[in-house]
Design a protein around this nucleic acid. Structure first.
Lengths: 255, 255
DNA sequence: CGACTAGTTGAGGCCAGTCAATGTTGGTGG
DNA sequence: CCACCAACATTGACTGGCCTCAACTAGTCG
């Protein structure tokens, strides 16, 4: 796997923060997250065809918006570096975090059906996205079976992921929610070759709360309590998981 | 079958409740929900090709299981008549209703990515399902653009639907949840040509509660309260919406 | 250094959960 | 047809977990 193991992100080569970067040496074929992303399992020549499709990349600074709810849908986005949140808007104006995405993740899939994005994506840190024009991706997927399979998988996995969140929101108590949130992050960092016990949260207490259905004060209190109980160590947004077994027990114990 | 209402479904010809029915006069081309289901927008010959794919249908009695979590995934299912719920299972054994599906809906899509069903589907009444073998559906979709588009749409719409549920579970108060639940049903019945103000719930109070993140007692109390306030009339599982504007206001008013 | 945002902590209230008793409905078999 | 039973539903009393409101602290950036 790519990525130097322990943690920090591999330094992104300095480059002008321009929207469209062509002929940059970043291709799917040598991308650090190719094993997690759309290219996984593709043959060499399929990879090259995919490379030709991904000619645009977008760089965002923290807080910048990739797309808004209601924007015309034209492409999916694969996260190359960094992380972002997706939020959904209720008719009454309430905004809620629906996803916390990191490198290798694909976002924008809820827009396919309606030709409009159904959610909003906001960078949680400086980050880079591969633009996958959907029409061309679809066209390419027609002929490349593994690519088509991967596309289905991303769509389907998003559904499963949402089901997990529904489970969390619908039946867990506050401490279970936070434990599940932390363990989920831990696993995803591990899958990406980072430390699974020590990482930096890219969301505020309020955003975390919005994601897991709690108020920010409750999130803060729980962080404090988990720390007091020796389960984690928190320093602002830096978290270290100290007692993963007990955290797991927290979410596995109730009927 | 539910509710005669404005333009009821054409009576399904009586037929033996056998699992696999071939050469029955039920085809996509003359199915009553074709405008809501996979065939929507398809040309005549595309329709016929789809017909050839859907050779199996499954009939379930109330309470019977279509698939279980962990079952090998091989097909999607389109609901021809009746309704079912899908449930997801947490690692700790807790089971939660994740979806309430009715005719025209497609289910099983969370199984594509893992080759295993991620949820369980249980009939809420006697109901009938078209079996869509996924490999063959995929093959057919390769060549029929509108079919492929529809497939994407179903996947994408499922994601959007889940986001709505997350919004409901994450930020609404009990009365808002029930109002949203009822209004959602109302709209879906309307789309299907049934009465949007008068219908029979196919789920118990407990199942409804599981779906919208409340306990059954709370659901029951809310039904009683809505009735006392003149918003609805409830008689067991038969519901009549009396004051839709106020119900809408209930979910549209909070920030 | 001051304004601002993010985070922590405390006190109190309320909404929904829990526990429990009772009523209702629908299916089954005598 | 009706008695019976089990599952479902209703209602009340009480509890408690999370929210609300509020004060305070710690960083951050001009």
């Amino acid at each position: 796997m790519a990525i130097p193991a322990s943690h920090p992100l591999p330094a992104v080569p300095a480059s002008p923060a321009v929207i469209s970067i062509r002929a940059l040496k970043t291709h799917c074929s040598n991308c650090s997250v190719r094993e997690l992303c759309l290219p996984v399992g593709l043959e060499q020549d399929a990879l090259q065809q995919l490379d030709q499709l991904v000619t645009n990349r977008v760089r965002l600074k923290k807080g910048e918006v990739l797309y808004r709810a209601g924007d015309p849908f034209s492409a999916l986005y694969a996260i190359r570096t960094g992380s972002c949140k997706t939020t959904v808007l209720a008719e009454n104006g309430h905004e809620q975090v629906a996803g916390y995405h990191m490198l290798g993740d694909m976002i924008g899939m809820d827009g396919i059906g309606t030709d409009r994005h159904g959610s909003q994506a906001v960078a949680l840190e400086d980050s880079e996205y591969c633009v996958l024009p959907f029409d061309r991706l679809d066209e390419l997927a027609r002929s490349i079976e593994p690519l088509r399979r991967n596309l289905y998988q991303f769509l389907s996995r998003e559904i499963s992921r949402d089901h997990s969140v529904m489970l969390l929101l619908g039946s867990m108590r506050a401490e279970e929610r936070l434990a599940a949130f932390l363990l989920n992050l831990s696993q995803r960092y591990r899958e990406r070759g980072y430390s699974s016990t020590e990482f930096v949260l890219r969301m505020s207490r309020e955003e975390i709360g919005s994601y897991i259905g709690l108020k920010l004060e409750t999130v803060s209190r729980l962080f404090s309590r988990f720390q007091a109980e020796g389960l984690i160590r928190v320093q602002g947004r830096a978290v270290k998981l100290l007692d993963i077994p007990t955290l797991k027990q927290l979410i596995g114990q109730r009927c």
